[in-house]
Design a binder for these strands. Structure first.
Lengths: 237, 237
DNA sequence: CCGCGACCAAGTGTGTACACTTGAGAATAC
DNA sequence: GTATTCTCAAGTGTACACACTTGGTCGCGG
């Protein structure tokens, strides 16, 4: 029976699982700095925009506070995280450690098929690179790394890497616009996969460290550009 | 003027910052498995026990979901995390990576005074060890590690280590009851501090890895004991 | 004895009401 | 002109109301 047993016509007044939808929506906004840094987030407006009441909005915002994407000042409200260069550099440090661990474990625990699949995935991305937006490429790049994290067999690593990625995505998204950076990314990923296939975990680690280090080097420039974009883009409604 | 301008006698009906209090309280319960694994958490009861309404309770629980201390099943409610041996082992893996990074950075960035202070702190703990409960010793042990994390100069590392520690505290608390384990902990911490003082970051890292590896070795036994305690302790009201 | 459906209690998910806080601007005193 | 206080609107923090979901129990029919 396809539901509709008691109230055939009447749409359910209680939306199913609003919090998760709202959480995902606000998270996306916070990740991409659709709120300006330090800007107060108006719960009423946000709730109206998402067509729910303040309750699920506040629950979602509370989650984001723990993730570090939003801050909460008692009696003042929720605020967009600051745009903090140090914080981003600190996150890159953490990311290096986590990705290093991930690739090492993946080397040891993955099977040959997993590595083939990873290689195939990245070849596919490389092949279609011309037609990909920076947006999409960022997403694929991130996926490459999360796939490795998944091969590590340790869900906690995956979870943490995803958390870090969300917070630095804005910067990486800008980085990857540079054609030079794009090129090196393709190469470096390929190298990492090769090392994994050969089960040379030490080499894979080293390559990963270098891969991220190069990224950090560009990050400062990307941050400048990022600030400009946040503050210079037209404020939509 | 000491407040009380408008409503002199009337106590404020709106408690200040309930969410944080409630969050801290529930977090403590979750960390120490005062809820049995997989047990449904009754919001109404919990709210009554904490003398607040369901609203701040739910906001706090939503935070804990993100921290991995609580799970949420839509339309069923919040549940205590499962007691999952794999998860704990995975957290130890992550912990190793984070603590290794922390100690390396601390070695490089801390100044001599910081290391002296750390050493003094740990000597103090060692001196008072006879009079310390396992509870308190766990807390000091954790503090030793978070102090190093703080010396790393990277607040994100600190944050993550604290998150991991909260989730494995229950097991480490049991581990540390063993007199043998206590002894080795004192020694190993001392060794780490010495390496830090000498600015030998490589050695400090190695010692840290070993320190945690030894801990993991005991963790499985501690988990068995932990399960027994959770399920055999008298359920208070 | 066993399925099957209606009913019911417990409890979650969300909307809403309202007290309180905060910050800004006006009015007043100096 | 400047500092201080008053007032008020905007908006948060929490309690509460109520519809809906879920899981169990009872009764009925096979």
């Amino acid at each position: 029976m396809p539901a509709a047993t008691k109230r055939p016509a009447k749409a359910p007044r209680r939306a199913a699982d609003s919090v998760n939808r709202v959480y995902a929506a606000i998270r996306e906004m916070a990740v991409s700095y659709e709120f300006r840094p330090e800007q107060r987030i108006n719960e009423v407006e946000l709730a109206a925009a998402l067509k729910v009441s303040r309750t699920p909005v506040r629950e979602a915002l509370n989650r984001l506070v723990i993730e570090g994407l939003i801050t909460l000042v008692p009696n003042k409200g929720f605020f967009c995280r600051a745009f903090d260069a140090d914080e981003i550099l600190h996150l890159f440090e953490v990311r290096t450690a986590l990705e290093t661990l991930a690739v090492r474990l993946a080397c040891r625990r993955g099977n040959a098929g997993d590595f083939e699949e990873l290689a195939a995935f990245w070849s596919g991305v490389t092949a279609r690179q011309a037609e990909m937006s920076a947006e999409e490429l960022t997403s694929r790049d991130e996926e490459f790394h999360t796939r490795i994290a998944r091969l590590s067999g340790n869900p906690e690593i995956l979870r943490m890497i995803e958390g870090v990625n969300a917070r630095i995505r804005f910067v990486r998204r800008i980085e990857i616009e540079s054609p030079k950076r794009r090129e090196t990314t393709f190469c470096e990923h390929l190298g990492i996969v090769e090392a994994m296939k050969a089960r040379e975990d030490g080499r894979a680690e080293t390559l990963m460290v270098e891969h991220i280090a190069i990224s950090v080097a560009d990050a400062v420039e990307a941050m400048k550009e990022g600030l400009a974009r946040i503050y210079m883009r037209r404020q939509s409604a």
